[in-house]
Amino acid sequence: MDRLRQHIEATSPLTDDEFEYVKGYFTLKKVRKNQFLIHEGDDAKYEYLVLSGIYKVFFVDNAGKEYIMQFAQRNWWMSDYYAFFKQKDASMFIECMEGGEVLYSTLASREKLSADLHKMEHFFRAKLTNGYVALQQRIKLLLSSTPQQRYEEFSRLYPELIERIPKKFIAEYLGVSRETLSRLYGKG
């Protein structure tokens, strides 16, 4: 739970009593490689904070093609957020690509923490805002840049992931073929 405290306190410092209260709303889970945290159609009742490992958040279209929305790593939050906030069935999957640990909590827990502690409301709002900004930047990049620019930006933002994630998944995330990624990777 020390990692949870460090993560929260990077945004909102807590007293020892406040942290004791907060940590009661989170549960630790060990996750194996290739294990799913969410399947399409599941009740997406949890939001996850990555402590270790790498996770792939994706959906599959009607033709069976996979689209990766996010790679989540240490200190990243993940869920099928539409399903989580609207309390609907999931339309996404979350798969563990590299075994690790997560902390998870429910929407009701998030709401209770936010109502009881202004510091936690501030923390969750800051995380949600940062996630929204990152998502807008990702969409902008996908819509208005070349494959080379997308690869360079991914390499700049996530240099550690280049070596840890199979190239076919990086290609999928960037919206390029595996062959195109191989050419781009050779230029880097």
Rank of each mutant, 00 (worst) to 15 (best):
Q148F: 02
K127W: 00
P147E: 06
D17T: 14
K86D: 02
G175R: 06
T146K: 04
Y82K: 12
K112I: 02
Y132D: 08
Y81G: 07
E9M: 13
F58V: 01
M78H: 09
Q136S: 07
E179S: 11
A10W: 04
L135Y: 01
Q137P: 00
I8Q: 15
T11G: 10
A171R: 12
Q136M: 11
F123M: 08
G100I: 09
F19Y: 12
Q137F: 00
E20G: 04
Q35D: 13
S91P: 03
R3N: 09
Y82G: 10
D89F: 05
M1N: 09
Q87F: 01
K88D: 08
M97I: 15
H7Y: 14
E101P: 12
Y21R: 04
A63R: 05
K56Q: 15
L37C: 13
L181V: 04
F169H: 05
F71L: 03
S52N: 02
I8E: 15
L141K: 11
K65Y: 01
G131K: 05
A108E: 10
Q70W: 00
P13A: 14
Y25E: 03
Q87D: 03
L128Q: 09
A115Y: 03
T106K: 12
E98P: 05
R138T: 03
S155A: 15
R183N: 01
S105I: 07
F84M: 06
